[in-house]
Amino acid sequence: MNGSAHVGDQNAPRVRIRSLDKTNVDFVLSNTSLSVANSLRRVMIAEVPTMAIDLVEFYENTTVLADEYIAHRLGLIPLVSHTVDKFKYTRDCTCAEYCKECSVEFTLHIKCTESGTRTVYSSELISSNKDVVPVLETEDDRGAILVKMRKGQELNVHCIAKKGVAKEHSKWSPCAAVAFEYDPHNNLRHLDYWYEKSIKDEWPLSKNALEEQERDPSAPFDYKAEPTTFYFNVETIGCLDPQEVVTKATRVLQEKLGGLQLALDEDQAPDAAANVDDGEPWV
């Protein structure tokens, strides 16, 4: 991230992955400052683009749930978004409403003809793009329940999924929870523990405490010390792989910084005055 840093540089930020599975990545980010680590966390939550259903056209809805209700539920279904980079944001696309470049279409047409309860699952959505489909955990997972129907009820919708970021609506967030911690022993004294009798008994140490040494209590307190190591745990909702979320987030962060860099460079150029208010230079 530092412009002068490159791979192998001792001062460059380091990432050490402690565990990685389908929905979780646990890593330690070190050799960087708190602001950078927090930026990464914020970007992972709010600015990693994914796909989510954004428009729903109702042709028939005789279920018990109202149209807005079902539309809201459809929007919250996580869609597999590995190919999200191939799509444009609709606002940047040349099409009038939506097109293949910027969206994926889904259809769902179910009529209950049986006498019992017919449960409609997200896996029943038929996608126009084989790469963007509702997230399913296993082979026989049927996904999230959309609505339950009784005999004679019908649901016929056409959905358009678009690319977006969670800043706009949290349905585009790839993350469920992002755990973030540093200095588990409170060596830096950023914390002021509240306790009744004994800190040690009442405040159990987190597992990250194994990674660091506790400060020698007799040593003088270093008030200039800065945090350098950060413990992350990113849990995803399945639309992106956890490592993907992290790498995409760094890219987004880089692009933002790059845009800023560019704007600053142009600002210093002799003819900068000519194009000051030139829209959004970093996009």
Partner: peptide, 26 residues
């Protein structure tokens, strides 16, 4: 709460989402 690794007081260590630093109190 204690069995599940939380403080019995119901308080938790909380980080500010804006700065990334812990907030001053539990």
């Amino acid at each position: 709460l204690v069995e599940h690794g939380y403080s019995y007081t119901g308080k938790d260590y909380v980080t500010s989402g804006i700065t990334g630093e812990p907030v001053g109190a539990y």
